[in-house]
Design a protein around this nucleic acid. Structure first.
Lengths: 155, 155
DNA sequence: TCTTGACCTCAACCAAGATTGAGGTTTTAC
DNA sequence: GTAAAACCTCAATCTTGGTTGAGGTCAAGA
């Protein structure tokens, strides 16, 4: 009695798009969209329906995490393309991605922290109203002296 | 010899859209756009050209700062609408805005920091590959147990 | 005066990140 | 065996935050 092949209540290697959507918390349309953008891949069953490896759940989770960090899909795609083609990615493979994004996260945190501290100063000085307020300087009275609004958290 | 009225090299109370653009570091089209969205206001000269109070520079500076924090224009507009209508906003008026946004900034920083720390853990544990990885749990094996991807930095 | 640059309006377009709908097929469940 | 649920494709639409361009007016300086 081999039940593993078709019984949907047992572990199955492949997932339908709806299952991926349900388990990843992403809309089916978003899954299609990610696939159209090359972030994930599927094969088709005889009826032309998409089938995904379970690994796709990890990918989608990673996509969502990266998006929270503010990384655009195109960059996420780049990063995911560094994963191995033939084999299921290992812990070490995923680690590389995480490490890269951690750096970006740290950058972002640093910029926001800087911004917050400047905002604090401005609350103390009567925000944006005094000549030496760091949030105000580059754009108002002193605009002639600089190349533009580049003092704060430049991209 | 009263030169203060028309001499453009002297201090003038009102600014043209081009001056606002140059001094704020924002494109003329963006100024128009902000005005169309109700974030700033102008009056018209006899030739139908926009004229701005100098105060608009502060507004634009504030808009740009808030955007860096990640606040959408609609919310910035809401916040700016709390400023007094008739009079030029005081330091205290601006302080209130800053204080509000500082809270949002702190939230954002906290969320990103949490995310970073979880990412660090995942690097240690072989990111996203183990059952107890906080970045993986809610969306994969354990998806049946929760209401969705809400464990991490929920909005 | 007259030219040039700055300004006007309005509509179209762009990018990202999707969602929605139409029209049709496949799978699943009873 | 049949109906409902899930799936398919493709095009259109949406939101945010703008930019670009066409066609025309206004203002400042030589």
């Amino acid at each position: 009695m081999n039940m593993t092949k078709l019984d949907p209540h047992r572990f199955r290697r492949e997932l339908t798009v709806g299952e991926v959507a349900a388990r990843s918390g992403v809309a089916v349309s978003a899954i299609h969209f990610y696939e159209s953008k090359g972030l994930i891949k599927s094969w088709r069953n005889p009826g032309n329906q998409r089938r995904y490896p379970r690994e796709v759940l990890r990918r989608v989770a990673v996509i969502k995490v990266a998006q929270r960090v503010g990384i655009p899909l195109a960059s996420i795609r780049e990063a995911l393309m560094t994963l191995p083609e033939g084999r299921t990615p290992t812990a070490a493979d995923w680690s590389k991605l995480s490490a890269k994004w951690k750096v970006e996260l740290n950058d972002r945190i640093a910029k926001l922290t800087q911004l917050r501290d400047q905002l604090s100063n401005c609350i103390g000085c009567g925000c944006l109203s005094l000549r030496d307020c760091p949030l105000r300087n580059p754009w108002d009275e002193l605009s002639e002296q600089g190349p533009g609004p580049r003092l704060l958290a430049p991209d």
